[in-house]
Amino acid sequence: MPLPNPRQLSRRDCLAALGCALPALARATDDPLPQPWAAHRPVPAPLKLPGHGGPALDLAALRGQPVLLNFWASWCEPCRSEMPSLELLAARHEADGLRVWLINFRETPAAIDRFLALLPVDLPIARDADGAAARAWAARVFPSTVLIGRDGRPVSTWTGEVDWTAPAARERFVALLKR
């Protein structure tokens, strides 16, 4: 069967094809490199979000501890795949004071509950109901993860699924965590 002429594809067809390809592309990079938070880039406004089934997220209250913010959605396959390794990362670095927060992107409490019934997660979840936090922290692809240093400033970001248990990812993370 011949390939369709790209000029004959509708915008909707192109977006659908891209949406199907993105999870595979995200998985194709086994160890996405952390990107440093540019020194000239401002820190977003104070981050306060309601919790889901637990405490609210107040980033300012966590100053003095390293924090990993993971922006995700239940419909995102790479997000689901990444969560078990995030839980292991949180457990491994709990003694270092690391706090890992999952920030759900624009889903209802019922949708989050359905997700948790299928994949129980033992990390705190905050709700970004209107997507403003994801926009402020430049989370345009899911999952997106931001490491916040003990001083409250962003250190690095990761875009796409990361296997936080992989040796190279663990080594890079530990180096960033010590900064």
Rank of each mutant, 00 (worst) to 15 (best):
D163G: 03
T145W: 01
R127Q: 15
H40C: 01
V155C: 07
A166E: 09
G131W: 01
V155E: 08
S144C: 08
T145E: 02
A133E: 04
G19R: 14
R27N: 13
W137A: 12
R172T: 00
P120N: 13
L25R: 11
A139P: 07
L116E: 09
S81H: 01
E94I: 03
R99H: 11
A26Q: 14
V155T: 09
S85R: 01
L98I: 02
G152K: 02
R80P: 01
G64V: 03
L118P: 01
W37T: 03
E161P: 05
P66N: 03
E171L: 09
A134Y: 06
R92D: 15
W75R: 00
L118A: 15
A134L: 10
D58H: 01
S10F: 05
P84R: 08
V155H: 09
R127A: 15
G152C: 03
P36R: 14
P34F: 03
L86D: 03
F115R: 11
A136C: 11
A168T: 13
P23H: 08
A136M: 11
L15I: 08
L25H: 10
D151F: 06
V162F: 02
A38C: 04
R150H: 01
S74K: 06
F173N: 08
L15C: 07
A126T: 14
P84V: 15
A61Y: 06
V174C: 08
W72T: 08
T159K: 07
M83Q: 07
P124C: 10
V121K: 01
I125H: 09
T108D: 14
P55S: 10
D122K: 13
R127L: 15
L119F: 10
G53C: 09
W164H: 12
D96A: 12
L147E: 04
A138W: 10
A169M: 12
